[in-house]
Design a protein around this nucleic acid. Structure first.
Lengths: 363, 363
DNA sequence: GCTCGTCATGTTTACGTAAACATGACTGCC
DNA sequence: GGCAGTCATGTTTACGTAAACATGACGAGC
């Protein structure tokens, strides 16, 4: 370590502009107000037993010096940090962003800040590294928005005194899990298509590493089997519109394919483009359903029928489940499922219909 | 305060399962290893001057007890927190998500964690509140991803000893600013359309409160004026695809409108839908350009010509500018502009072309 | 063989806060 | 008028870490 600590002798008054002054402590305020630092502490925390005139003196001194409490010291004192860590792969997916936003909002409402730790890839090392950093960080608990089922062997890596909630993944019964009800959402989507008279439903799945993708693919297969329908070969994408496009091109080549369930909206967008390019009309020739109901889905061509996922609610439940653990309230292990609902727009229509809601403009 | 502190007398060994044990401190490790806590500190920090056998004893003790350093204590000691605060409105916009992701990644690479504080609305109170919380938090500096120009009067609210970098907004010369080169991006978009032979270019702007939206609208106007073209009335959206759709419906009604520049991709998506519904072909009848180059833009119908914005680079520069301040290196006030580039896809074509790349499928 | 230097390790202290305990002034009651 | 009780305020201490200083053992050099 060559780092040179800046000399500490510089007093606040050395910096006329006011910028970069030393941190103001309770002792400074106490000195100016002519009271003890304990009294300052009482005022800062709104504790009873401070006479009005004293309180005003202290508040005036605080204002003059620009005092703000030091939460490092507070944390040290209390052993609590009022901070929640969030470990995730990235914010690029709509779902993650929205979930994290909700987590941040609800955490803030409860007086907690959130600390974000992104991990590059799903390697054990990365996640263990993130946990190590979290452990050293000022964090009371951790929300994992990663494919934790890849980490089965690494149970060791999670320090035993860290509270954890897992999102959208399989944690066995090691930790409470909050998840969207993938199976039910998928069921609604597939049944909707079957009810429209389609003989069966093709599926563009997400990547095999994704627990959510596997849950959706599994439910799709199950519903078809239960209905006694043939189960077409599954197309595999990577959540991106582009991968949906390529899957869509393959499906468009099969004239028997009249109904497609894509595992997310972005892949559905790619499917729509592929079908369009191949001259297959949506929904006249082929019906398409997505998953997520992202903000743009209603503006696709045609507006997309999709399974609405309540990311905000997922975030909310994560925070509350974690806080319950932190406060030592009865932990609810097991999985907490957030309901979905099918939003029917214009990308689905009865099988065999060739007139009516045709994508083609009048040209 | 009625909060009852859990009794502190419970020793680690009281909890057989290992979960919920007391925090392990250097003193505990020192006791087990039979050395002083200072020696443990030296080992923990890799300081020189510890003999190999001693080091091994300490490491063994650390392992046995599961010791992890307490960064609250560390922060208190050093006066540094190794944490960067990020204040933003929300993560719902692609740009914010991607920028925050980049900030988190680069901050992590430098050994900093990031703390997220979302503010509900752009009110002064909210932002001041966020700053207050940040100030109390363990944060060395703050990145503001909000429309700071709304806060001119609140310079007071930003504590003088807090390091700040502002993104995508106007901070006067109070703080360093990192921004996408809105003007240049807009110029590329508008000039591209003019070069294709369009007489002028219509604009679907973002909300007036947005600095970025105003920069884009201003540059659009300037380029048209410099080129001696008429400046059509501006349509105002709110960044959403839906608002773009409504603006698009109005523009579709004007037969003279052959070129549209939307202030972001999502509004462009809405415009595409409106034009499609009104039977105006893209790009044969109308050319459309967006801004952002979000991941989906290449899968729109037709794939969207748009201005690519490098959010990751914006995030990177924010972090480095902030760290430079924190480390007391020469601060670079003023605005750091990140370059954009026009990505030409299939939503733009020469004016007057009525054949060729027609959106209509062969039906 | 004694001193001095070197180096591993121990001891003291401070960081800012707040609980726990201590003090001292003033009130009210007999 | 004296004593107990109440209440505002002060003092001490601990939280976990690491810099600064202290100690003590050992080896080299004269």
């Amino acid at each position: 370590m060559i780092a040179i600590e800046p000399p500490r002798l510089r007093a606040a008054s050395d910096v006329p502009g006011g910028r970069r002054k030393q941190r103001v402590s309770m002792a400074d305020v106490a000195r100016l107000a002519g009271v003890s630092s304990q009294t300052v502490s009482r005022v800062a925390n709104g504790a009873a037993g401070v006479v009005e005139t004293t309180r005003e003196q202290v508040l005036a001194a605080m204002g003059e010096l620009g005092y703000r409490p030091n939460s490092a010291a507070r944390s040290l004192r209390y052993g609590r940090f009022n901070t929640i860590g969030v470990i995730l792969f990235g914010l690029s997916s709509t779902g993650n962003s929205r979930t994290v936003e909700a987590i941040a909002t609800h955490a803030a409402a409860e007086g907690y800040a959130i600390t974000l730790i992104p991990v590059g890839a799903a390697t054990q090392d990365n996640v263990m590294g993130a946990f190590t950093r979290m452990g050293e960080l000022t964090v009371d608990g951790v929300i994992l928005i990663i494919e934790v089922h890849l980490l089965d062997a690494s149970a060791v890596a999670i320090p035993p005194d860290v509270h954890v909630v897992v999102v959208d993944s399989d944690a066995g019964d090691r930790y409470p899990v909050v998840d969207t009800d993938q199976a039910d959402g998928t069921e609604q989507a597939v049944r909707h298509l079957l009810a429209l008279g389609h003989r069966t439903v093709w599926h563009v799945a997400g990547p095999a590493e994704s627990y959510a993708a596997e849950r959706r693919a599994g439910a799709w297969r199950r519903v078809l089997e239960e209905a006694g329908r043939p189960v077409p070969a599954l197309e595999r994408g990577d959540w991106s519109a582009d991968s949906g496009y390529h899957a869509g091109l393959r499906l468009a080549a099969d004239p028997s394919c009249t109904a497609i369930f894509a595992a997310n909206d972005q892949m559905a967008l790619g499917v729509l483009r592929a079908l369009h390019e191949r001259g297959r009309r949506v929904p006249a020739d082929v019906s398409v359903v997505g998953f997520d109901d992202i903000a743009d889905a209603g503006s696709y061509l045609p507006p997309l029928t999709t399974v609405h996922q309540d990311f905000a609610e997922v975030g909310r439940r994560c925070v509350h489940a974690l806080l319950r653990q932190i406060h030592n309230e009865p932990a609810d292990a097991g999985t907490d499922l957030v309901a979905t609902r099918l939003v029917i727009r214009e990308s689905t229509a009865p099988a065999g219909e060739t007139l009516g809601r045709d994508l083609r403009h009048e040209g």
